[in-house]
């Protein structure tokens, strides 16, 4: 069906990565692009849960943090090679998601929001208080760089390519799921949980599956973050971080894979563009969340497009 245009998009995307990677040598810009990649992973992860299956999570940074802390502890404290720590980090997040998801995803609406928020807070408190393992509030230092065999990802350029190849793979994975039997069933839950059950969709199992998948993607981003910065602290994975992920999804437009990329890019670049932003960060975030949700619930890109079309219709008459 849409296979052709999708493959063209993938090709453009890959060419774009190569072009950026080869032409940029400035490490500031490379770092920025790496962060866009990490944020895109987080936005994609929450988008699967919130955009497609319609289940909100206000504690998603917890899984990001679990990915980062598990690899930090394993590779630093226990000197496990990163390649082995990766499945452990992702697996731990998925396992926790599975255990927590079972009771949590039975909830809906506000209760689901509060439940996920509470979970995120508890994980954040564990990072902060369990200092013998996590280093406590002051953080965890000395995480080793990523080395896989003879390949070492210490340069910004190498990390840039690594992160963006992962992003591409995750995008392909998400698109494939969305266009499949399971993906359609997920979207049906979003459109109407009652009707979905009435046509035979096992809503509870599916919601749990997508929650676990989503946790895995977020943990993957956490893994990459830890080996990029070599230092992690609880503040990175708190409530504000969860809200930032929600904002990326909302701005990019729920239920849109490319929207996640857009939302992540915008929210990574915006603070860099506006220098005095840090003071206003929260005010601006709050305003963005409210106005986009009130006036363009389908996201910024589609919202602006709608307004443009309405304007043209008006003008033509």
């Amino acid at each position: 069906m849409q296979d052709k245009s999708t493959y063209i998009l993938y090709t453009i995307f890959t060419l774009g990565i190569c072009l950026l990677g080869w032409s940029i040598d400035n490490s500031y810009y490379l770092q920025l692009l790496i962060f866009i990649g990490l944020n895109t992973l987080l936005a994609l992860s929450l988008n699967m849960l919130m955009g497609y299956a319609g289940q909100i999570s206000l504690g998603h940074a917890a899984f990001y943090g679990i990915g980062a802390y598990v690899t930090a502890v394993l590779t630093t404290t226990y000197q496990v090679p990163p390649l082995l720590a990766l499945p452990a980090a992702v697996g731990a997040a998925m396992l926790i998601a599975w255990i927590v998801g079972m009771p949590t995803l039975r909830l809906s609406g506000y209760y689901l929001g509060m439940g996920t928020l509470g979970f995120g807070m508890i994980v954040h408190i564990v990072f902060r208080e369990w200092s013998s393992v996590t280093g406590g509030a002051s953080g965890f230092v000395g995480i080793p760089p990523l080395e896989i065999g003879s390949l070492s990802f210490t340069s910004d350029k190498a990390y840039f390519f690594l992160v963006w190849i992962v992003v591409l793979l995750v995008i392909i994975m998400c698109r494939r799921i969305i266009d499949s039997r399971v993906g359609r069933a997920l979207r049906s839950i979003h459109d109407g949980e009652k009707a979905a059950a009435a046509v035979g969709v096992d809503t509870r199992t599916l919601k749990l599956q997508v929650f676990v998948l989503s946790a895995g993607i977020a943990a993957l981003a956490g893994f990459l973050y830890a080996h990029l910065i070599y230092f992690i602290s609880p503040g990175t994975f708190g409530f504000m971080a969860s809200i930032r992920i929600v904002t990326m999804v909302v701005i990019g437009g729920m239920a849109s894979v490319w929207g996640a990329l857009f939302g992540a890019s915008l929210l990574t670049l915006l603070p860099e563009w506006l220098h005095a932003f840090s003071e206003f960060e929260m005010v601006v975030y709050g305003l963005i969340l409210m106005t986009v949700m009130i006036f363009m619930p389908r996201g910024l890109t589609r919202g602006l497009l709608d307004i443009y079309q309405r304007y043209r219709k008006h003008h033509d008459r």
Binding site: S180, R181, V182, R184, R187, S188, D191, A196, V199, A255
Partner: peptide, 25 residues
């Protein structure tokens, strides 16, 4: 399911008669 095409609606209806899971997809 309003966000989906007519065909996709029918395909969701076949959920119980098809098998592929997340990993297969």
């Amino acid at each position: 399911f309003e966000s989906m095409s007519v065909l996709e609606n029918i395909l969701v209806g076949m959920y119980t008669r098809t098998r592929s899971g997340m990993i297969e997809s």
